[in-house]
């Protein structure tokens, strides 16, 4: 059996509302501003597909997966794979977004698990998530994302 034991947890506190965080994750016209990519799905309902598409003229689809669980604005669980590896079930990992109000802040926890130790995806996301989440925080608090 494929070893999918690796996992990462990322936490950021953002001065905003849970609804805005959920929208920032699921609405392409928002994600493009801080991610440089659009997260696109027809309805973000369980069983539906989602894609992460580069927000430039190439419109390259970089990541694909399915929605596993959706409870706006508190929780979203999706599967996650490179577009180039989409036919290999072993390459799918799982991302859980938990969004929780704490005082005047929102605690966003991103759990990325079912990853293969030593895989390219693991390396990619461990560089990628801190940038994406810092940029999301900056965008939601100041209207300005970071240069990704």
């Amino acid at each position: 059996m494929t070893d999918k034991s690796a996992s990462f947890v990322y936490v950021t506190f953002i001065r905003t509302t849970p609804e805005k965080v959920f929208d920032a994750i699921t609405r392409p016209e928002i994600s493009r501003h801080y991610w440089g990519h659009e997260n696109v799905s027809d309805d973000w309902q369980p069983g539906s597909e989602w894609q992460n598409i580069k927000a430039n003229e190439t419109r390259t689809v970089e990541l694909v997966g399915k929605v596993i669980e959706s409870a706006p604005p508190k929780r979203l669980v999706i599967s996650w794979a490179n577009e180039s590896q989409k036919y290999d079930p072993d390459q799918y990992s799982r991302v859980t977004y938990d969004i929780e109000q704490q005082g005047d802040m929102v605690k966003l926890t991103v759990l990325h698990d079912e990853l293969q130790p030593g895989s390219g995806m693991l390396k990619g996301i461990s560089e990628g998530w801190p940038l994406v989440l810092s940029s999301m925080k900056s965008f939601l608090e100041t209207g300005q994302g970071l240069d990704l």
């Binding site: 947890v9 990322y10 936490v11 461990s126 810092s134 925080k137």
Partner: peptide, 13 residues
């Protein structure tokens, strides 16, 4: 326990 590099990235930035 998991390392959370997000604040470290913010300090770096």
């Amino acid at each position: 326990h998991f390392i959370n590099p997000v604040p470290l990235y913010e300090v770096y930035e």
